[in-house]
């Protein structure tokens, strides 16, 4: 191919893969934060106490209506002012987890709301404790259909983690760009970075599609 230097590509590959590892670490950490935070946000929003539900609702809407990049900047630059000097990676994954936590909270809410009223009523009539109602009846039915949606957000986080380069996290995209500015060769690093994102996200998307089909058939 015109202009493509295979030798160079092989040389930079280890460095790119190193960046990919950071990307994956950030993605998984962020995802764990997101699924835990999301559950709390969802439960908070569904609370009968409006003093809890409304502020959480407003918070979720606010985060969802503003770009991840700006939130990254905000946390990265503002937190030190209040004495919190955290490493860029930590700030990045927290912001990533917070942002996507709002999305997962919507998945949880929709999934829980989808459980027929009858289930709640039957559980109450059988005198289950509130905890048992949740753990024995509601969550086991609500969670399986949520998995494809959560899977899609995991893949989304993997791709959007590229934005962490803006706060100097040495993930894949930043690594690619740095290689470019160092060597003046942008073609190979950026194309390879794109390819690496694709090679991981496309098969994952197919798996999630298959999961979705399986759950659609069951209902």
């Amino acid at each position: 191919m015109l202009g493509w230097d295979w030798q160079f590509t092989l040389e930079i590959l280890p460095r790119l893969l190193g960046g990919l590892v950071v990307t994956i670490e950030a993605t998984i950490t962020g995802f764990i934060i997101a699924i835990i935070l999301g559950l709390f946000l969802a439960l908070g929003r569904r609370s009968e106490n409006q003093w809890i539900a409304q502020p959480i609702g407003a918070f979720v809407e606010f985060i969802r209506s503003t770009p991840l990049l700006v939130q990254l900047f905000f946390f990265f630059f503002v937190l030190p002012r209040y004495g919190l000097r955290l490493p860029a990676f930590v700030v990045g994954t927290i912001a990533l987890g917070l942002h996507y936590g709002t999305y997962t909270s919507e998945v949880y809410r929709a999934g829980i709301d989808a459980i027929e009223r009858g289930q709640w009523e039957a559980a109450t009539a059988l005198n289950f404790s509130p905890l048992r109602v949740w753990t024995g009846i509601i969550l086991p039915q609500a969670i399986p259909p949520m998995i494809p949606a959560l899977g899609n957000y995991l893949i989304g986080m993997f791709k959007e983690s590229a934005q962490l380069l803006a706060i100097t996290v040495t993930e894949l995209m930043l690594t690619a760009r740095v290689i470019g500015t160092e060597t003046f060769r942008f073609l190979e690093p950026i194309t390879m970075a794109g390819l690496l994102y694709f090679l991981l996200s496309y098969p994952s998307a197919l798996i999630v599609q298959r999961l979705e089909a399986r759950y659609a058939r069951k209902s």
Binding site: M1, L2, G3, K159, E160, A162, Q163, L165, M173, A176, R177, G180, F186, L187, I190, T191, A193, G194, Y197, F198, S201, Y202, A205
Partner: peptide
Amino acid sequence: VEVFRGSSVLVQMFWIFFVLPLPP
């Protein structure tokens, strides 16, 4: 569709802005 959904907008922006001006 699959190619453009396979990576993020940022990656694609970088590619268009940094790589497209170059040969080939």
